[in-house]
Structures are given as C-alpha cells and as structure tokens.
C-alpha cells in the first residue's frame, strides 16, 4: 500500500531551520537544523527542551511554523502518509487499548500500518512478542499489564513491519535495568541498517549506543556531534572538591553539582561543573558524557543555582 524501501535503503531526515510556535504562543523550537542519516541518533535535553516536538514534526503529527522537514528529500508536510509508511513511532506517552490482548493490539496496529498479509502479520507478531519478552502474557488483557510491560508493547508496535525509520521518544522509561540494556542493544543492532531517532534522559543509553547526538536546550541545538566530541567540550570544566557541609551552598552558587557523597573526613565530596575551578583545593577530573551534558546546560542557562 505504501512505498516501502528495502531494509538497507537509508532514510535521511533533514530538518532545515525549523521554528515551532504552538498555538498558545510557546516557542518550542528555534532555528533547528539537523541532518540525520543511518544509525542511531540521540536527542538529549532538559524537560521542555523540544525533543518531543521535534520528533512529532518528523512523524508528520505537527507542522513546523517556519522551515522544513524532509525525508529523503520529500517534505513531510507534503506527503505525510508516505512518511508514516516508513515510520515506526513510539510516542512518549504510549498507551494501548486496555481491553485488547497484546496480540489483538499488534494485529490492529499491523493492519493500520498496511501489513495486509495475515500470515506475515501473525509470524511477525509472534516474533516481536518473544523479542520484547511478552511471549508469556499474550492471553492477558493490556489493562492488567505493568508499566514496563506496556512500554515493551509500545516498542513492539514501533518495530512492527520493520520500518526503515524509527522514532522512539524515551523508550526505556519505566523499564528495569536489564530490559533497558537489552532494548538499547536491540536498537543499536537495528541501527546498522536503519535510521533511528532516540530521545532519552538516560545519558548512558546515548553514550553506549548512539554514534551521534544532538543536545537541545530551550528549543535550540546547543551541540551536535559524537558523544566523544561532546565530552571533549567539557575538558577542564569538571572538578572534584571536598568541602564542609556548611560550605556546599557557596560552591552551588557558582557551580552545578553532578554528584555529592559523604567523604571520609566528615565533609562532602562534590563533583561539580563550572567555568573555573571552585575554591578550596579542587582537582580537575576527566569528564563523562553526563558531566558534559551538565556543562552545556550550565553554559546555556548559567552554572549557579
């Protein structure tokens, strides 16, 4: 029903100087330009940064106020159902019909995706249910599922039909660590032949599976590149320092605290990011991706509280 490229046909998404202003007047995106090709592309950013808005624009669920989103050169707004035919989409707030069983639900979604061959549908659904670990719950209604089970069902419906473009909005929210890592690895594997856009608040997921990422802050692209490049932006801006509990607030006024724990001498051992070293014998440390995220957010909105 829809043109469906072969699995190794790369889908390229180009976001060109896109602004998005919601009817209420909220500007969710400002001048966002990104080119996203095969592989896994991570979207990081604080709450309200515009990650979901960006993904909904690519999924043709929303129109840009200015600028253009194209998939393989075709504007999304011009041929929305063609784009959706290439797309597996997991909404941030994924929910399913409570009274259906997972098999019925996936069958419905498969039909909406245009998988008309009943045998292929059944085969693929069985396989996916096993793959996301729901094989033993196929007779239960979705209404009886735990949050993590629902999320797995959401992942399964996105993968249905082997779409060459996957957009998953916080897919690992609510999953236990084992399942999260399993799913992360599954995505990385799929990313070898597909274009995957992943948004998450779990920096480790991006670190371990994405070859490229963009950091959105306040609707703007604050960084775009590899995780290593992001880390190198933070070199010389991350310190560890031991302070008395009473002094911690003084450090917080000029720095962002990444972590704090009790030190052996009765003080607090802080890991902080900021422009300069905090006073009191701070020593520079090698940044992680999480530190780098904090540095860029700090540079955009200020390091002090």
């Amino acid at each position: 029903m829809n043109p469906r490229p072969e699995q190794d046909d790369t889908v390229e998404v180009v976001i060109d100087r896109v602004d998005k202003v919601y009817p209420g007047g909220v500007t969710a995106l400002r001048g966002v330009s990104l080119r996203i090709g095969r592989g896994m592309f991570g979207l990081l950013g604080p709450n309200g940064a515009g990650k979901t808005t960006l993904m909904r624009l690519v999924a043709a669920l929303e129109r840009p106020t200015r600028g253009e989103v194209t998939v393989n050169g075709i504007p999304v707004t011009r041929r929305p159902s063609w784009v959706r035919g290439l797309l597996g989409y997991l909404p941030q707030d994924f929910r399913a019909y409570d009274k259906l069983t997972p098999r019925e639900f996936l069958d419905y979604v498969a039909l909406l995706k245009g998988l008309d061959d009943p045998r292929r549908r059944r085969r693929e659904i069985e396989l996916l249910l096993e793959q996301v670990g729901l094989g033993r719950s196929i007779r239960s209604r979705i209404g009886t599922f735990s949050g993590g089970m629902r999320q797995r069902l959401g992942i399964a419906q996105a993968l249905l039909g082997g779409p060459p473009l996957l957009i998953v909005d916080e897919p690992t929210a609510g999953l236990d660590p084992e399942e999260r890592i399993r799913f992360r690895n599954l995505l990385a594997e799929l990313g070898l032949t597909r274009t995957i856009i992943l948004s998450t608040h779990v920096v480790a997921d991006v670190e371990h599976s994405c070859s490229e990422l963009a950091l959105l802050i306040g609707g703007r692209v604050a960084f775009r590149g590899t995780p290593d490049a992001l880390i190198s932006r933070a070199v010389g801006k991350v310190w560890e320092v031991e302070v008395d509990p009473g002094e911690a607030d003084r450090v917080r006024a000029t720095h962002r605290v990444v972590s704090s724990r009790a030190a052996s001498g009765g003080g607090l051992a802080l890991r902080v990011v900021g422009r300069d070293a905090p006073p009191g014998g701070a020593r520079p440390v090698r940044p992680t991706l999480e530190d780098a995220y904090m540095v860029l957010v700090g540079e955009a909105v200020g390091f002090g509280k």
Partner: peptide, 22 residues
C-alpha cells in the same frame, strides 16, 4: 472519543493508513 480516553490518538495518527478511515 475512544482514542482520547485510551490515550492512543497520537499513535493512530502516526499510522500510514488514512486516518479518517478509522
């Protein structure tokens, strides 16, 4: 209103099949 109540409107809207057909 089914999809509004079930929270599935966004999902159905992202499907390639003609949405009014639903």
């Amino acid at each position: 209103s089914l999809d509004v109540d079930a929270g599935t409107a966004e999902l159905v809207g992202s499907m390639p099949r003609w949405t009014p057909g639903v």
